[in-house]
C-alpha cells in the first residue's frame, strides 16, 4: 500500500456547534476534494463530527523540537500567570 504522488493532509474535526475544530490525524490524498472524502471515511465513522477541515501538511509551520527549552521553559517559573490567586465567592458558582 505505497502511496506515491500522494500529498499528506492534516485533518481537523468539529464535533458539535460551538466547539473548535480539533486535530484528529492525517491521511494521504491526491487533492483537496479526495482528502475531504477520505477524512470523512476515516475519521467520522462513529458520528464524531459535524464539520471537517483538511489542510496540506506542508502548509503548517511547526516549532523546532530543539527549541523546546528556550520557548517553553521560561513559562514554568511564572505561576502568577495562572489566575489561581483569587478567592472566588461561592455565589459565582462554576466559572
Amino acid at each position: 500500500m505505497s502511496t506515491p504522488n500522494m500529498a499528506l493532509w492534516e485533518v481537523f474535526i468539529r464535533s458539535r456547534n460551538g466547539l473548535a475544530h480539533k486535530h484528529v490525524g492525517s491521511l494521504h490524498a491526491p487533492d483537496a476534494t479526495l482528502a475531504l472524502q477520505a477524512a470523512r471515511d476515516l475519521y467520522t465513522r462513529r458520528g464524531e463530527g459535524l464539520s471537517i477541515w483538511v489542510v496540506p501538511s506542508n502548509a503548517i509551520t511547526a516549532s523546532d523540537p530543539a527549541d523546546k527549552e528556550m520557548l517553553f521553559e521560561p513559562a514554568d517559573s511564572k505561576i502568577y500567570r495562572h489566575p489561581t490567586f483569587y478567592d472566588v465567592p461561592d455565589e459565582v458558582g462554576h466559572m
Binding site: M1, T3, A38, D41, L42
Partner: peptide, 12 residues
C-alpha cells in the same frame, strides 16, 4: 485496495 484511505472508503 490501492491505498489505505480507499480501503476504508470501500469498506464503508
Amino acid at each position: 485496495a490501492p491505498m489505505l484511505e480507499e480501503d476504508m472508503a470501500l469498506a464503508n
